[in-house]
Design a binder for these strands. Structure first.
Lengths: 217, 217
DNA sequence: TCCTGTACCTACTCACGAGTAAGACTACTG
DNA sequence: CAGTAGTCTTACTCGTGAGTAGGTACAGGA
């Protein structure tokens, strides 16, 4: 109880809100929505519970706000990583790298986004579905570029995009349990799987970026 | 309160246990582990709470038992669907069909297995990891058959198997939100994606089973 | 120096849910 | 019909966690 035990007193609202959001993402990602308590979030954030309610509203509002913030951060990271005037395979490659790069550096964000939000019903799933919809649209547009030739592509591209996004999601989940692998390796693995297919891979044909540096990552 | 409001009175223990398990899978799949209450499970099962505790133990024990039962059912469905003396691609195809067939007919089981169990820590994740490990081993063995030719296959096959299993898991999740698609179509889509790859698909090369009936499903 | 607003707290209320105590009802066995 | 084993219930205890009441402390302006 020394007077010097400064808890960074009397900060402006915007700063506190960021601290609270960071704490909330941390706690939600570790415990899940239901098991997380507002008491613990306020403790991690270094403030008291009434502040939390005054600034961010109820537990549900806080969770929804977390999802929106992290979803926005991630989609910006991905679309920022794509170079639009490259060939489709290179665009896909850079998108995958951006995605796994983001997940690698923001594991808590990914936890709260994918594993938590998708298991809670109600408004949360809506936010999530919205983000996934944007990701699928991004990939579908990219695939549609590749398939100008083929005939019945519009719907087919979209469902394949959904499968690819799903594969990315679950490979990211798998990666959470195998954190030793570098991001580039995981991304390259998925790239090869979806671009070449096992049928080619067993013949030794692998995909690689158009030679800047031979090694991955 | 008519005396005729028979709640199927005084059944033997084994029958009650099955009813309770079914109710538990239903409630857990709808609400998740934490939000599900033992009161609701007992109500759905048509018995009172103390019976539930007497027969299946605590909430955590009940949940773990659910996971074990559903995981076993699913793995049996899959390995029962594979014909071991076929070529690797056909084996993979029949495995995928068995998997999506099971999920389609047991949506609640899949919910509780994948979406719920994977987000809860502790003993549940262990059960789940165990099941996934068996699935990955199954697929990895299958892939290893295909790649006798290639050199550095042992570890590579295993990680590709993990990616494939992950892709299947998340495609099944996606399917939960698009229940109108038939199981065979979803399975065929994943089969094409992982066996042919986009690189072939954009050229119009699709994989199909070695002609019994031309149409899928 | 008083005044007002914003940051911030302690200490509650209240509902809900896990788990239990204690016994009642039924069926079978002798 | 008494006894016993197993089925089943009502009616609790008790902890935990969401949300709030009612304040204190500090900062800046008059």
């Amino acid at each position: 109880m020394q007077p010097d035990q400064r808890r960074a007193k009397r900060l402006p609202r915007a700063v506190r809100e960021r601290q609270i959001m960071d704490a909330a993402v941390d706690v939600f990602s570790r415990l899940g929505f239901h098991a997380a308590s507002m008491d613990e979030i306020s403790e991690v954030a270094g403030i008291s519970k009434p502040m939390l309610y005054a600034y961010l509203g109820s537990k549900e509002e806080l969770f929804a706000t977390c999802i929106r913030r992290e979803a926005t951060r991630m989609m910006e990271a991905i679309s920022g990583g794509i170079e639009p005037d490259q060939t489709p395979d290179v665009q896909l490659w850079s998108g995958l790298r951006a995605f796994f790069g983001f997940v690698g550096e923001n594991r808590a964000s990914w936890q709260v986004l994918h594993r938590q939000a998708s298991t809670q019903g109600g408004p949360f799933a809506i936010e999530l579905t919205d983000m996934r919809g944007r990701a699928v649209a991004l990939v579908a547009a990219l695939l549609a570029q590749s398939t100008k030739a083929a005939p019945s592509t519009q719907l087919e591209a979209e469902s394949l995009a959904a499968a690819l996004v799903g594969a990315g999601e679950s490979l990211a989940d798998w990666w959470l349990d195998h954190p030793d692998e570098p991001a580039g390796v995981v991304a390259a693995r998925l790239m090869n799987l979806v671009w070449m297919g096992f049928g080619d891979l067993v013949d030794g044909n692998i995909w690689h970026p158009p030679s800047r540096r031979p090694g991955a990552q």
